[in-house]
Design a protein around this nucleic acid. Structure first.
Lengths: 252, 252
DNA sequence: CGAATCGTTGATTCAACTCAACGCGAGTGG
DNA sequence: CCACTCGCGTTGAGTTGAATCAACGATTCG
């Protein structure tokens, strides 16, 4: 039961392998990273702003998000993380967290010692490249989010976030972009979008009334992808998926 | 005239040294990176979205900025770069640029071969750490910008950008945070802030009328730092300057 | 069943946008 | 040397997209 394909870090390994090809030996070394699995209930804080972080975590199951608070009590979510994402790789080289990380759903993390990750990154350049590349892609997504909240109106902005989540889930091999679970309240979506929950509601309703999406409970189906992505002004370039062509290929 | 302290990459070397201490030998290796100096007139494009980039550049003089365009013709500036900043380190590991980089003032860049940078990063782990750390700090700044455009009103948002620029210039050893040059038009500032130029004008004027800042031409003096930073909801944590204590220390 | 949380809708307000005009300084050319 | 232009900054008046305030449904859960 302890073969490589059942290792808890298989997801991370595959993710890194797609970022930069790893030899079987390198893959073994990633999977051999010492880690502890920890589970968080929805809403639980994984890291708080200002805290010292001593570990780096991969999402195994569930969703987590990062956010910052502003003076007037407002909150802005700055990223959403799904399985195989590294939620606090930055703590490998930055001592104090500049933001909060919180569980969106019940989430399971494999928490790895930051020194071990850092050592491996520089002992095995392919692994280092893969990790670094991941942080660069994350920065690219952050740039797109700035554009999204800075220069798109509520309709386009909301559509854009739906497109991104759909494509990222698909790229990770979790089904198709046409249907996905979005286990966020409209208030949380508002904190992603820089909008009030009331306006999120109206915007989603308007997209639904126009036949672009359908919602039931917390699941979204995209009725007309072309329409949605054109409303969203969405293209996949910033996700840098192009060199990650086989989302579900085996790699052992 | 070719001693280490007159090398064009001295600025970069010092910057990396402050990010992660480098031995004199390591510093020599950074300065020995092959590079060509290129100068760009204000408004000239350094990289365009979708382009393949084959080099990584350090700013030697002047200012550059990164931006993306949206469907309706709008533009969002996602970062501003000053001397010693790496403007396209991402191209070391990502093939296609996901954004544009443009000269704000006349700017001089030292353009280094991306393979040489990558090799050095993994041959000398201290240099690799310093570079990687830089990309992580950049990501932290991007997160703060998302918060800024997403959840702060025009007054606070504008004040925040002024604070950031003031502190970054000071941290790089270019004078004090109380007075600095801001060679941007109000239209460009609007593209940083996600506001129209007209509203930028009114917002700056209101800060000036309240005695918080003074402007003349393109230079800004901060009359009341405490007031400005409190309006801005600004703290320096996200810049991760704490481990960069001596902005002008010698390091050769 | 009651309580709590989340989603929905309407009425009103307000921050920022749009449209439009004018001022001002720097450069240019007759 | 002045007149003209051009880009940028400034200001006013009116509009609008999103926020606010408030109420009411729907769903889940103990």
């Amino acid at each position: 039961m302890a073969g490589p394909l059942t290792n808890l870090l298989t997801g991370l390994t595959g993710r890194l392998h797609r970022a930069h090809p790893l030899s079987p030996e390198e893959q073994e070394k990633v999977m051999a990273l010492p880690h502890v699995v920890h589970s968080f209930e929805p809403g639980a804080y994984i890291i708080r702003e200002g805290e010292r972080a001593r570990s780096s975590s991969v999402v195994l199951k569930g969703l987590a998000y990062r956010h910052k608070l502003v003076a007037d009590g407002g909150r802005q979510i700055v990223s959403i993380h799904m399985a195989t994402d590294l939620v606090d790789l930055q703590s490998v080289l930055l001592d104090y967290s500049d933001h909060n990380v919180q569980a969106l759903t019940r989430v399971e993390l494999a928490m790895m010692d930051r020194e071990a990750v850092l050592d491996l990154a520089f002992r095995e350049p392919s692994i280092g490249r893969a990790l670094w590349r991941g942080t660069l892609i994350e920065a690219s997504i952050l740039r797109e989010w700035i554009v999204n909240v800075g220069r798109r109106d509520a309709r386009s902005r909301t559509a854009h976030v739906l497109c991104e989540i759909a494509v990222r889930q698909e790229a990770l091999g979790f089904g198709s972009r046409d249907k996905f679970e979005l286990p966020m309240t409209q208030e949380q979506l508002g904190d992603v979008l820089g909008l009030t929950p009331v306006h999120v509601n109206r915007t989603l309703k308007s997209l639904q009334d126009d036949g672009v999406i359908n919602r039931s409970k917390r699941s979204v189906t995209i009725a007309d992808w072309n329409h949605l992505s054109s409303v969203a002004d969405f293209t996949t370039g910033y996700l840098h998926l192009d060199e990650m062509p086989n989302p579900v290929e085996s790699f052992g």
